[in-house]
C-alpha cells in the first residue's frame, strides 16, 4: 500500500501541493530575503565604523560614515564624480577589450597547438607572477603620465587570467564531443567554431571575470601616481588636501563600480552559457 502511495505521489507531484508558491512569488521572496541579509550586514558594518570613528575622534584619520556619505552626495552634485568615473571606466573598457581581443585568440592557439604552447608558455609563466604595479615606475619613464600608463597596467593585469583560463578551457573540452562531431563528418574548422569554442566559453568567461577584477585593482594603483584623472587619482588628490570623507567616497565608488562590472559579466555568463550555469560549472 505504502509503495503505491509513494509511487502515486512521485508520478503526480503537482496536485499534492496546491499552496506551494509560484516560481515568480518564490523569486520575489528570495530576493527580498537576500536584500534583508545584505542590509543587515551593511548596517552592522556601518554601526561599527561609526563607533570606531567616534572613538578615534579625528575626522582626518577616520571620518564617520555620515560625513563620507555627505561628501559623496556633494561630489555627485558638483559633477566631479562623473568625470573621474568616466575616465576610469573608459580605461577599464579599453584595456579589458584589448586583453580579450589578444588574450582569447592567444589562449586558443596555445590550447589547440602544442608548438604554440611550448613557445609562449615559458614567457607567460615568467611574466605572470610580476604584479602590474611593479611595472608602474618603468611605465612612467616610457609612457609618461596620461592615458597610456593606467590603460597598459590594467591590460597587464587582465591579460594573464584571460589567456590562462582560455587555455584551460580549450584543453578541457570533452574529447567525446569532438569525436561526436568528427564521426558526423564535420571538418576541423567547424569543430573549432561549433564545438571547441562553445565548450571553452564558460572557462573563458571565468577568465574574463578574473581579468576584469585584476585590471580594476591594478587601475587604482596606476592612477594614484600615473594619471591626471580617474578614481585612483581622485583618492590621491583628496588625500593631499586632507579631505578624508571625499577619499572614502571615492574608495566606495571603486568598490561599487568593480562590483557592478562583475555583475555585468556574471549576467553575460548566464546569457551566453546557460547550459554551464545549470550544471553548476562557472563560478
Amino acid at each position: 500500500m505504502t509503495a503505491r502511495d509513494e509511487n502515486g505521489a512521485a508520478v503526480a507531484p503537482g496536485g499534492a501541493t496546491p499552496y506551494w508558491p509560484t516560481p515568480l512569488a518564490a523569486r520575489i521572496y528570495a530576493s527580498i530575503g537576500g536584500l534583508f541579509v545584505y542590509v543587515r550586514a551593511m548596517a552592522v558594518f556601518l554601526v561599527i565604523w561609526h563607533l570606531v570613528s567616534l572613538w578615534i575622534g579625528n575626522p582626518i584619520l577616520l571620518p564617520s560614515p555620515i560625513a563620507a556619505a555627505e561628501a559623496l552626495v556633494d561630489l555627485t552634485r558638483q559633477g566631479e564624480v562623473f568625470s573621474n568615473v568616466v575616465a576610469s571606466l573608459t580605461r577599464l573598457g579599453t584595456s579589458f577589450a584589448l586583453a580579450i581581443l589578444l588574450g582569447v585568440p592567444l589562449g586558443f592557439a596555445m590550447g589547440l597547438s602544442r608548438n604554440v604552447f611550448a613557445m609562449v608558455d615559458p614567457l607567460i609563466e615568467l611574466l605572470r607572477p610580476i604584479s602590474g604595479i611593479a611595472w608602474i615606475p618603468l611605465g612612467m619613464f616610457i609612457l609618461g603620465v596620461g592615458e597610456a600608463l593606467p590603460t597598459a597596467i590594467m591590460f597587464y593585469g587582465a591579460f594573464f587570467p584571460i589567456v590562462i583560463n582560455t587555455v584551460v578551457g580549450v584543453r578541457s573540452v570533452n574529447p567525446g564531443l569532438v569525436q561526436a562531431a568528427r564521426v558526423l563528418g564535420v571538418g576541423r574548422a567547424h569543430i573549432v567554431r561549433h564545438v571547441i569554442w562553445p565548450a571553452a566559453l564558460p572557462n573563458i568567461l571565468v577568465g574574463a571575470r578574473l581579468g576584469a577584477g585584476a585590471g580594476w585593482m591594478a587601475m587604482v594603483a596606476a592612477e594614484l601616481i600615473g594619471a591626471p584623472s580617474g578614481l585612483g587619482f581622485a583618492v590621491e588628490w583628496y588625500r593631499e588636501l586632507l579631505m578624508t570623507p571625499s577619499v572614502l567616497a571615492f574608495v566606495f565608488l571603486i568598490g561599487l563600480l568593480g562590483y557592478l562590472f562583475d555583475r555585468l559579466l556574471r549576467w553575460l555568463q548566464r546569457v551566453l552559457t546557460p547550459w554551464a550555469q545549470t550544471q553548476g560549472g562557472a563560478l
Binding site: 564531443l177 561526436a180 564535420v186 554551464a276 550544471q279
Partner: peptide, 28 residues
C-alpha cells in the same frame, strides 16, 4: 558511418533540434 556513443556525447549548448541538424549542417 554514424556512431551513437554510450554517454551520448550530445552538445550541451545546442537544443535537441540543433544537435540533430549538426551533421547535415556542418559536415564537409
Amino acid at each position: 558511418r554514424g556512431v551513437v556513443f554510450q554517454d551520448y556525447a550530445l552538445f550541451p549548448w545546442k537544443t535537441v533540434r540543433e544537435n540533430i541538424e549538426f551533421g547535415p549542417r556542418f559536415r564537409s
